[in-house]
Design a protein around this nucleic acid. Structure first.
Lengths: 244, 244
DNA sequence: CGACCACTTGACGCTCATCAACTAGAGTGG
DNA sequence: CCACTCTAGTTGATGAGCGTCAAGTGGTCG
């Protein structure tokens, strides 16, 4: 149950121009004057406590959200109660793109730790991107990148075996963390085995077993959610060599 | 092997305004004057023979393609030679959205029957969509719809069993055919069992077996690629009731 | 300290992949 | 027109991989 207090809207001015995520987020490539225009659009910040929803499937779509701090998962659910995690989002990544299609969200977005997001009014974003070619183009690129990413997940779900899936997942995660200035080898998972399993099309027991196997094989150290990659090349080899 | 002659560029004028796909394709919601502007943009048509590529992974991205007639598949391939069909496209559907992310295509698009497409210069589309709000919005909706569709496939690949996957696939296919004025019950597959399997994360033998089982169960008639749906509700029930 | 939840590990069985043999239909050439 | 070939599809036998069920461990929080 989400507590209403956790979704407090902060009226604080958030300056994209001074945000350290501006090279990862929507503002990529904008010049100073364009950035200041973008700031007029991103006027609200919102805090979401761990476990709470940023938005839910079926809710009216009005805004995109850029993760400022924290960590999210998105998941779709079928009528008969099946649940599929479609992605994990960290700082600088955009949430809510699915909502554009029908003015309603098609998935749930849940904070996996206490998080804060920048609220981007979608109507205003469309307006501003008619004015600034660069913004328009980079928004399109972000949507397209999401499509490419999803196709990669389809490849993973359709073709790979459990070990390959988990290895690919870990490499993707560490790569994104590294792009944000974190260590490429040491990380703390924000999600449960079950959530990883849901994303990868596996059961939590299989995820757990595969972690144990990676540890036995000297590829990594696993202490609950504390991970240390010992052999990145080894993980990469697992992903690439389907038959070995 | 693609024959060079099959990719002939036809300089024919293609009028979106008079195209019978305008309610399914990019022009949705545009008025007469906007439609005529769009026509200035969509100046080329291209024919692609069965088996030939419309574009390939790695090629420079310059245009989107709207399927005018025919049928396509798109597939991604990993470094180690794995192949995953990411979608099947029919009349009115857009191809190439993945290319926007990096100015290069990230998948192959192959015609499954002799086909023709409208060539949409992407740079011009961006330009025009800065001018026409409606076009901008409907383009965004198309991209978002692609994301939503991909999430649906992820749910299918991550959670469903073979019968459920095939049933969901068939229902999706007939629904799209019906939207184009074809029968909801009788159809001819344009793709092989292997291509269906690749899309659904199954092997061709499993697809074949599952078709046979559906036939035994009286859900449909299967004669090679000629299908007839006998019990649509039965297929729907398969998709919805994961435990029966 | 006790309760709870995430996680681990083992035993077993189902689903689907794999391998293989066979059939049907389409295209080819004598 | 018939044999020949090629590809797509069907069907059977077998087993690997992962799901399921169950018991147990460890860390966390009230």
């Amino acid at each position: 149950m989400p507590t209403p207090t956790s979704d407090a809207i902060e009226p604080l001015k958030v300056a994209c121009a001074s945000c350290n995520l501006r090279e990862l987020c929507l503002p990529v490539g904008l010049n100073a004057s364009e950035l200041s225009k973008l700031d007029d659009l991103v006027t609200k910040r919102r805090s979401v406590s761990r476990g709470d929803h940023l938005f839910r499937n079926g809710e009216r779509f009005e805004s995109l959200y850029a993760v400022r701090t924290g960590f999210f998962k998105t998941c779709v659910n079928s009528e008969d109660g099946r649940d599929q995690v479609t992605g994990f989002q960290m700082a600088g990544e955009l949430l809510g793109l699915d909502g554009i299609s029908s003015d309603h969200h098609h998935c749930d977005a849940v904070a996996l730790e206490d998080s804060s997001v920048c609220v981007i009014q979608y109507a205003q974003l469309e307006e501003l991107s008619r004015e600034f070619t660069v913004l328009q183009h980079s928004f399109h690129k972000i949507m397209s990148r999401e499509i490419v990413r999803d196709h990669g997940v389809m490849l993973l779900l359709g073709n790979m075996r459990a070990e390959e899936r988990l290895a690919a997942f870990l490499l993707n995660l560490t790569q994104r963390l590294q792009a944000r200035g974190f260590s490429a080898s040491s990380l703390v998972l924000r999600m449960t085995r079950e959530e990883i399993g849901s994303y990868l099309g596996l059961k939590l027991e299989t995820v757990s077993r595969t972690f144990s196997k990676f540890q036995e094989d000297g590829l990594m150290e696993v202490k609950q959610r504390q991970l240390r990659i010992l052999d990145q090349a080894g993980l990469q080899a697992l992903v690439n060599n389907s038959r070995c």
